[in-house]
Amino acid sequence: PEALVEGSIKFAATSGGIFIDMAIHDIDLMRWFLEDEPTEVYALGATFKHPEFQAVGDDETAVATYKFKNGGIGVIHVGRTAPHGYHVETEIIGTEGSIRISPVPEKNLAMLYNSNGVVTECVEGFPERFAAAYLAEMQEFIDCICENRKPGVTVYDGTKSTAIGFGTTEAWKSGKVVEL
């Protein structure tokens, strides 16, 4: 959220860069949804309001486009600030239809009607937004131990997505298409 931008600015100086910080899970999701691996990436970034990001070699907002082996295309748009709160969404566009997941990161199901119009409160941060997911993740960990089984997500998934994240960072910094 824009209200917490000072923390993002402080973190940016020692972080992995906007794509490692903000897009690693999106890279995981693209690979999972497309059941494939990207072969190349092109990325751009920009800063409009907080030059402190560029002062440490980072950006406020960035976009990356991926080409996949099977012909699929993935696009990630990330930003370090959102004036309305914490915002994460996914859109999948297919040949038979589309699905949009969490277009408004609603805090609850209440809508406020006041002098600002019709307002839906947004979640304030990722702990609030993903509380149920974190519980499910911990339960899966416990279940794997109790049932003596390995989780569906492997070390390969984490290392592959991280390598793609570093390739995306290279494309962003170089302004060139990078083969993955």
Rank of each mutant, 00 (worst) to 15 (best):
L109R: 09
P151W: 09
C122P: 00
S15L: 06
G165N: 06
R80E: 12
E124Q: 12
I18G: 01
A43H: 03
I20P: 03
R31S: 01
G72I: 03
A82V: 00
I9W: 09
G165M: 00
K49M: 11
M22R: 08
E147Y: 03
G16Y: 00
T14H: 13
D21R: 13
V153M: 10
H87A: 11
V56D: 07
F11R: 14
I99D: 06
L180V: 13
T154R: 08
G158Q: 07
G7F: 09
S15G: 15
K107Y: 10
V104K: 03
V56P: 02
V177R: 02
A55K: 14
T95P: 08
T47K: 07
K150M: 10
D59C: 08
E40H: 09
F53Y: 03
T61E: 06
E147H: 05
A82I: 02
Q54A: 09
A62G: 15
L112V: 14
V119M: 08
E52F: 08
M22E: 14
V153Q: 06
T14R: 05
F126A: 11
N148D: 14
I27F: 08
N116F: 08
A23M: 02
V88N: 14
E60F: 01
A136Q: 09
A43D: 05
T162V: 05
E2W: 06
E96H: 10
R80N: 13
L109E: 08
Q139R: 13
S15N: 13
F141R: 14
S174I: 03
A132Y: 02
R129K: 11
I93N: 05
T162N: 12
I24A: 10
S102L: 07
E121P: 03
V75C: 13
T95R: 09
T65L: 08
A13S: 13
E179L: 05
H25L: 11
E128T: 10
W172L: 15
K150E: 13
A12I: 00
V41S: 01
N70Q: 13
P51W: 01
C146T: 07
G117H: 01
I93V: 12
E137R: 04
Y66E: 06
Y156R: 05
E179T: 14
S102K: 05
A136E: 12
I24L: 15
G165C: 04
W172Q: 12
M138T: 07
R149L: 04
S161H: 07
T159M: 14
A43P: 04
P51I: 03
W172F: 11
E106P: 00
V119R: 09
V104N: 13
A133D: 09
H50F: 06
P105I: 01
V177L: 07
K10D: 12
E124W: 00
G94N: 06
A136Y: 04
E121Y: 05
K107D: 02
D36T: 12
N108E: 12
V178H: 04
V41K: 04
V118M: 06
C146F: 01
R100T: 15
G125Y: 04
A171K: 02
W172V: 02
L29A: 12
E137K: 07
L112F: 11
S161K: 02
E40S: 15
G175K: 12
V63P: 00
V119H: 10
V153P: 01
F11A: 15
G16L: 05
V123M: 06
L109M: 06
E2M: 11
E2L: 14
C122I: 01
L4P: 04
Y134V: 11
G167H: 10
I92C: 11
